[in-house]
């Protein structure tokens, strides 16, 4: 599933790095706790989160996460967008809540990854 397809399924806006929107996403991870995200490495993963601060972008950077979706209509600020642009990580914003966001992607074939 590509990032562009994720945006379509979630009716999400692509806020930045649209040039990378055709990258393939293999797995997904949904959490507001960054330490939980850091505990399990997945390859070519998308991060779904309701947390909206610069540490979300940094966590994605450390984990080689290739896309971040902010749920519940959360929108990153300029500083966060700048961090994401420097790292080429597309940021998406969807109005769906976390549970529905996960459900929609799962329903369309995306799965969580295995352990490290």
């Amino acid at each position: 599933m590509t990032i562009r397809e994720i945006a379509k399924i979630l009716d999400a806006e692509i806020i930045c790095c649209e040039e990378n929107a055709d990258l393939d996403v293999h797995t997904a991870c949904g959490s507001d706790m960054m330490s939980d995200v850091l505990a399990y490495v997945k390859n070519q993963s998308v991060l779904l989160t309701g947390l909206c601060n610069p540490q979300v972008i940094r966590t994605a950077e450390m984990m080689d996460i290739i896309c971040i979706v902010f749920v519940r209509g959360k929108r990153p600020d300029e500083a966060m967008i700048e961090l994401a642009v420097e790292r080429g990580i597309p940021l998406l914003s969807t109005g769906h809540r976390m549970f529905n966001t996960c459900g929609l992607l799962y329903d369309n074939g995306l799965r969580g990854g295995g352990d490290f």
Binding site: D32, M33, M34, S35, D36, L38, A39, L51, N53, Q55, V56, T59, F116
Partner: peptide, 17 residues
């Protein structure tokens, strides 16, 4: 700190891991 996404008690375990 928990509202910022950390403080779940995973820091040192993750470092060891």
């Amino acid at each position: 700190i928990r509202t910022l996404g950390f403080g779940a008690g995973m820091g040192l375990p993750n470092m060891k891991k």
